[in-house]
Design a binder for these strands. Structure first.
Length: 1117
RNA sequence: GGGCUUGUAGCUCAGGUGGUUAGAGCGCUACACUGAUAAUGUAGAGGUCCGUGGUUCGAGUCCACGCAGGCCCA
């Protein structure tokens, strides 16, 4: 049995081969099945929509998911991963409309709802095959055979059951949201409709800066200078008709405001007004700035003004003011200043008039500040706004009762006596001294695309989930979730929870989960349906009572079928379904329950799989899936839905721009995987930046990853396989005890065990980037560039003895462990590596790395002292290399000795333990140690700032200067006596201990040295005759090896060498080192002859050598 | 406008709790090495650690205010 050897490994091919192997042997299924009975690790798949093609960012998100599921499987957990598809929603509808060339208006006319929804159903899974292919090719293990699909009846039924639970708990209610509304058409408009071309038009409106009078009460007195003063807030509106509905004013928290004393230009009264500091120049003519306040007479064009005081928005919050147009009284205290997060000083006065019934922002900030809307009772006794659905003021607005707020009744606007309602309001306010400024203003305003009339923002019925009722619990439980990164949980998500508003469920659409609520026409009675069975019962009742036609067929739970169902109320009235669909986010947030058709069945399965241990999605899901999962779990189960969550960032192009198909900078995931193989793509994405940072995706980086990490690892494996095959090493021998292995064996095993421990903790902490980087550093720096480099000879030289077996075992172990540690991130290549190794050794029962278990840490094999020593060896070697370079002496030339000053016995001991490694690495014969007793050591002293700084604080500079002044005697004194007194200045002294300073060797007089940190190394560059000869011998070996290679000889092929007699130095070297040369070059004989017929000329330094090599069979050169 | 986030070498990124020469890889230049060889080593060039203030004996690190990019929300 031989280890597989590869020439020019194709990583994409590895992906394909391994994938085929997995399929053939059901490795994924078995990775779950073999953990049966073990502790489960629960993972939820956030459902993608197969409505579009997958992009490279999906590879990122799914790699993150996959890594932790595989890791937990390695750790012995059972990890079920059910796939899922998100199938409802606006994007699907829009796509269908685009393809059919229709608009929403045509639904029910040109195309039936039934046909339309059928098209949606067909469209939504259009790219499923591409998604499945990507899932497979990138190695994302998830169960694609039994996915949950949100449009299936069972899924919808689960949603209904959950809605009913919420309904029964009183969390579902009907309220209103402010939406674009067309009184002329009598219908609400979607934001999509509003974005139709031509909807926004330039119009000239009458605008008013209104004066809201500050109440003269104790808490407001800081806004008054004397009893007679009348102080007003100025607020600008382009919709004067909303002023009767005003209930508050909003200011910006950090905006600066000023109080200005001036006069009203219509009434000539002296007034004080408050507005944003930045906007003073917009309302007051600078020419008037120098005028005295008293210098004014009624009717003057130039109105004097004086800025008298400055406030911050936050100072003004809470100030109460008189209602501007007191037609209707609110049900709760109102008319005060609140903080609005959207207030700017770009236009208006920096103070915003709030009418909660006619502005979405208004409604939101009002709700947050407990400010009521201004409502009247309609004919049915239901609260309604002061403008009716036809766009007319209600009777309570006495002065304007019955007037259209905009020209909805087709009046002739060019008629000389035509006065829009806004103008009438302006006139009234002017007369009452409540208008500061009235002017025409041209701006864009949305219009209804059907009637061409201006749109109103108007409260429309909506169903809500009362998330605010559980706000505190949402916040509390969120604190128990482990967010990666933490700031997304506490900041982005936490802040959003702090400012939570109720969840608006309603959507006026066709393709989605219908709201299962039926109501009587008067809204007095209603029922929430929680299952198909219940629906059927109710239908039966309704049919037998005669309110519903028995012929109505409910083919599935979508529209239009459910809309045709009419139910019977308790009092015997017909009930019709509320026509809304629910927010698609409810669908995905319901997946922990609905994927199992819970609560209608599978109670046990659900309980075993709730909450999730882990989920991962893009950070853009914070207010989406992350929220809906959390909200539903808290309201339904009083639990978190997930314990750990990774919110990954975006994948940008290499320049940091967003990828888009339109700009052509999008990277095709299939192309990446096809070119570089799935592992390099995954590894690059994970190792390059933490998942929660944005990733600048550069294909060059994938190439580098492939070369540096996978190339090095594969080289290491190839090296192992090459020699292990020659020696028939199959790991059949018992493990060589650690004590009998070499220093470098024990070192790499120590490093390996440290790695096992570190990588485990990184995975455990949901930090795959650190795991990948640690593995990569180990493979490249420790295993390949140090261990293998130092130990090459052990593999290809000498007999198959214990030392060689130890080397094989050590390297084998490292490779096998790396296969396991890296398998979550690079599942394909590590599978091949594991199987190549295990296929020969059969050390493990599991035939796949993904069925195997995470390696145990052998703590007794971790030797920090040894790791430190080896670090010392690496540093010393590097210093010697550096000296050789400076002296232009090649490594092949042996040198006699290096000198190392040692500061203490431990240091000497450490170096001695690794001396052999250093010597062979740098090709030097001996190390000499220089210590204090030699008398030639010069020491350098530096203060330990960290330690001394804490003691001396402000005097640190004096101490540092004093330490610098210490000479060699002082240092010696300090070391000998364990203390030394330094003068800080004329009066003060300080006693230093050896701990307070860092002492290192500075120099060895007379030698060229190199140093790093506390280490200093000198190199003896004297060349003796013997050393020269050895250098020549080594050169010869090198040249012969090159010849062998050029001649395509196999490593184990034997040769005969013939040399033509040349310079005496060369001949001496050949004679003295003949055994060495033969051993190194696999030569059976080395003979010197006087004349060679065919020969190769070698240049060795200044010598010319003719050489001839032949194998037993034939002559090569 | 608000919340969160990022800013360190040409590029991609490391730099617990502040401690005195700011690192790595890639790329570039030069030189070496060479049964792992499309590998490797050594050295060099390359930094106003985004800016400005502040705290401190000492700031890439802490604080404040800005600037620039990103995401979400408005």
């Amino acid at each position: 049995m031989k280890y597989n050897e590869y020439k020019n490994l194709n990583y994409a091919k590895v992906g394909e081969d391994v994938l085929a192997y997995w399929k053939q042997h059901n490795i994924f299924e078995r990775s779950v099945a073999t953990r049966e009975g073990n502790k489960p690790f629960v993972f939820y798949e956030g459902p993608p929509s197969a409505n579009g093609t997958p992009g490279i960012h999906h590879v990122m998100a799914r790699a993150v998911k996959d890594i932790f599921c595989r890791y937990k499987t390695l750790k012995g957990f059972q990890v079920n991963r059910k796939g899922g598809w998100d199938t409802h929603g606006l994007p699907v509808e829009l796509q269908v409309e685009k393809e059919l060339g229709i608009t929403k208006e045509d639904i029910g006319k040109k195309i039936s709802v039934e046909e339309y929804n059928q098209r949606c159903r067909e469209t939504v899974m259009r790219f499923k095959n591409q998604w499945d292919t990507l899932t497979e090719q990138m190695g994302y293990w998830v169960d694609l055979n039994n996915p949950y699909i949100t449009f299936e009846d069972e899924y919808i039924e689960s949603c209904w059951a959950l809605l009913k639970k919420l309904y029964d708990k009183g969390y579902l209610y009907k309220g209103y949201t402010i939406q674009p509304f067309s009184p002329a058409a009598g219908t609400g408009l979607s934001s999509h409709e509003l974005n139709q071309p031509g909807c926004y038009k330039m119009v000239k409106d009458t605008t008013i800066v209104a004066q809201f009078e500050v109440k003269k009460i104790t808490r407001n007195m800081f806004l008054f200078e004397h009893e007679e003063e009348r102080t007003y807030f100025l607020a600008w509106t382009t919709t004067p008709w909303t002023l009767p509905a005003n209930t508050a004013l909003a200011v910006g928290k950090n905006i600066k405001y000023v109080k200005v004393r001036t006069y009203n230009q219509y009434t000539y009264e002296p007034i004080s007004v408050i507005l944003a500091k930045d906007l003073v120049s917009r309302y007051f003519n600078p020419k008037a700035a120098d005028l005295a306040l008293t210098d004014y007479s009624s009717g003057d064009k130039l109105i004097p003004y004086k800025v008298v005081e400055e406030f911050l928005g936050s100072d003004l919050a809470g100030v109460e003011f008189h209602q501007l147009m007191p037609y209707v009284q609110p049900e709760k205290p109102a008319f005060r200043v609140i903080i609005g997060d959207y207030v700017t000083t770009e236009d208006g006065t920096g103070i915003v008039h709030i009418s909660p019934t006619f502005g979405a922002d208004d409604a939101r900030v009002a709700a947050q500040n407990d400010i009521p809307a201004l409502l009247v009772m309609d004919e049915n006794g239901k609260p309604s706004p002061i403008v009716d659905r036809q766009g007319r003021f209600v009777p309570e607005i006495t002065d304007f009762a019955g007037m259209y707020v905009k020209n909805y009744d087709g009046q002739d606007e060019s008629a000389p006596d035509y006065k829009p309602t806004d103008v009438l309001i302006a006139i009234k306010l002017k007369e009452e001294g409540k208008a500061f400024k009235v002017e025409k203003y041209e701006h864009t305003y949305p219009h209804c695309w059907r009637t061409d009339k201006p749109v109103l923002y108007y409260p429309l019925d909506s169903w809500f989930i009362k998330t605010t009722a559980v706000k505190d619990r949402l916040i509390e439980l969120n604190k128990t979730i482990n967010w990666k990164p933490e700031s997304t949980g506490s900041g982005r998500f936490g802040n959003w929870l702090e400012n939570l508003v109720d969840w608006n469920l309603s959507r006026s659409r066709y393709w989605g989960t219908p709201l299962p609520i039926w109501r009587t026409e008067d809204g007095e009675e209603e029922i929430c349906i929680g299952s198909i069975a219940q629906l059927n019962d109710e239908i039966e009742r309704a049919v037998s009572a005669g309110v519903m036609d028995a012929s109505v067929e409910v083919k599935d739970l979508h529209r239009p079928y459910v809309d045709n169902v009419v139910l019977l109320s308790k009092s015997g009235k017909p009930m019709y379904r509320e026509t809304d669909l629910i927010d698609v986010w409810f669908d995905s947030g319901a997946m922990p329950y609905a994927q199992w058709h819970y609560p209608l069945e599978n109670k046990e399965i659900f309980e075993k799989n709730f909450p999730a241990d882990f989920i991962a999605e893009g950070v853009d899901q914070t207010r989406g899936w992350f929220f809906t999962l959390h909200a539903l779990a808290v309201m339904l189960e009083d639990s978190v839905a997930y314990k750990n969550v990774i919110a990954n960032g975006l994948v940008l192009d290499k320049n940091g721009n967003k990828m888009s198909k339109r700009l052509g900078n999008a990277i095709d995931p299939f192309e990446m995987i096809g070119t570089y193989g799935p592992d390099a793509v995954r590894w690059y994405m994970i190792a390059n930046a933490p998942p929660w940072d944005n990733l600048k995706f550069n294909p060059d980086g994938v190439v580098e990853t492939q070369r540096r990490f996978f190339g090095t690892l594969q080289n290491t494996y190839s090296f192992f396989a090459l020699y292990a095959n020659l020696d028939n090493f199959t790991y059949s021998e018992a493990d060589v005890p650690m004590a009998q292995r070499t220093e470098s064996d024990r070192w790499i095993i120590s490093k390996l065990n440290t790695l096992i421990q570190d990588v485990d903790s990184y995975y455990e902490d949901y930090d795959p980037t650190r795991a990948a980087r640690a593995i990569q550093d180990f493979v490249v720096d420790d295993l390949s560039n140090w261990y293998v480099r130092l130990n090459r000879k052990r593999f290809w030289k000498g007999e198959y003895n214990m030392d060689k077996i130890a080397a094989y075992q050590t390297l084998y172990t490292c490779l096998e462990v790396i296969a396991k540690l890296a398998s979550p991130i690079a599942p394909f290549y590590t599978e091949q590596l594991y199987r190549d190794l295990n296929g020969v050794s059969n050390k493990h029962r599991e035939e796949s790395v993904h069925l195997a278990y995470y390696p145990e840490v052998n703590h007794e094999d971790i030797n920090k002292d040894l790791e430190e020593r080896m670090q010392l060896a690496q540093t010393i070697s590097s210093l010697v290399h550096s000296l050789r370079k400076k002296e232009m002496i090649k490594v092949r030339q042996p040198l006699q000795r290096i000198l190392i000053p040692v500061l203490n016995p431990k240091m000497k001991q450490q170096i001695e333990a690794v001396a052999d490694l250093i010597l062979s690495e740098v090709n030097v014969k001996t190390i000499e140690y220089i210590d204090d007793t030699s008398g030639i050591l010069v020491k350098k002293i530096k203060p330990n700032f960290k330690k001394l700084g804490q003691v001396f604080g402000p005097k640190m500079k004096l101490v540092a200067a004093a330490v610098q002044r210490m000479d060699q005697n002082d240092i010696a004194h300090l070391e000998r006596e364990g203390g030394f007194e330094v003068m800080l200045n004329e009066e003060e002294t300080a006693v230093l201990t050896p701990d307070d300073v860092e002492i290192s060797s500075e120099d060895i007089p007379g030698w060229l040295v190199a140093s790093e940190g506390k280490l200093t190394v000198a190199l003896d560059i004297t060349l003796t005759e013997e050393l020269k000869q050895e250098g020549i011998a080594r050169d010869l070996v090198n040249r012969i090896q090159n010849l062998r290679k050029d001649s395509n000889l196999e490593v184990q092929d034997k040769i005969h060498i013939l040399l033509q007699r040349s310079a005496p130095e060369v001949m001496a070297a050949v004679q003295n080192y003949s055994n060495y040369i033969c051993a190194e070059t696999q030569a059976l004989s080395l003979d010197v002859v006087e004349e060679l017929e065919s020969a190769t000329l070698l240049d060795i330094d200044d010598y010319k050598v003719y050489i001839h090599i032949q194998t037993e069979q034939n002559t090569i050169i």
